[in-house]
Write a protein that binds this DNA or RNA. Sequence first.
DNA 1: TACCGTTATATTTGCCCGAACATAACGAAG
DNA 2: CTTCGTTATGTTCGGGCAAATATAACGGTA
Lengths: 119, 119
Amino acid sequence: MHELFAENQAFRANGRLWIEGPADRFLGIGRLELLEHIQATGSISKAAKTMGMSYKKAWDLVSSMNTQARQPLVGAQAGGAHGGGAALTPAGAQAVAEFRAMQERFEAFLAAETARLYQ
Amino acid sequence: MHELFAENQAFRANGRLWIEGPADRFLGIGRLELLEHIQATGSISKAAKTMGMSYKKAWDLVSSMNTQARQPLVGAQAGGAHGGGAALTPAGAQAVAEFRAMQERFEAFLAAETARLYQ
DNA sequence: TACCGTTATATTTGCCCGAACATAACGAAG
DNA sequence: CTTCGTTATGTTCGGGCAAATATAACGGTA
C-alpha cells in the first residue's frame, strides 16, 4: 500500500460510527456530544447553543433517542425555577459512557489502519 | 449496555469507512465497488450502468481518484474498436485489494461491537 | 398575575447536492 | 467518410433536508 501514497503521509483512514435501531439511527458522535453537553449544562437549549445547533434540532435528536431507547436517556421539565431544564437519566449516563468507549475503540482502529497505509 | 437494548437485538453498530487525502475523500465503499465493476466490465459506462449510477457521476469519481493518487487507478481510452474502454492500472488493482481488506477488517470490528452491545 | 427561560411543536424558507440533460471528441471498422 | 459506443465535460433542474421562524405551554418566583 505504501507505494500508493505520498511520502508525507497525507492520506489517512477516517470514518463514522453509530448505533442504529430498526427504524432509525439511534446514537452517533453528534448525538453523543449533545448528551455530554446536556450532562454538563443541565439544559437542552444551553447544550444546543454551545454546539452552534438550533434548539429544534437538538430537541428532535433527544426525542429520537428517547423514543427509541427502552428507557429515556434524557429527562426534562418545562417551567419552574429557571424555566426548567434537562438531565441525563441513569440510562442516558450509561449510554454516554458506553458509546464514548466504543468511539474510542473506533478511533484506535482508524489510527491502526492509517499506520498500515504506510507500513 | 445490555440493559439499554431490547432482548431481540434490534440495535447494531454500523458505520462508514474511507481513506481521505488533504483535499477530498479518496476511496470509500462506493468508489471501491465502482473500481471493482470497472475491473469486471472493462468500461466506466458499463460499470455505472450495472450500479444504477449515471456515467457522469462515475466519471467524476474516477477523475477524483486519478488526480489524487500518485499514479492513476484507472486507465481509459476514448474511441477505437468498440468505442474505447477502461481498465484498472496495477496501482488500481492494488488499491482495490488493500481497501477491500480494510473494509473487511472494519466489518469485523462492527460485528464485534454489535456483539458487545448484548454481552 | 405578570414575568422569565425553558421545553415542546408546527410551518415556512432557503439552499445545496445530486440527477438529468446536452454536447463534443475520440478512433477503429466497414 | 459515416457509424458506433465509449470517454470527457458543461449546464440546467428539482427535491429533499437543514435552517430559520413562529407560537404555545409550562411552572416557579417576585
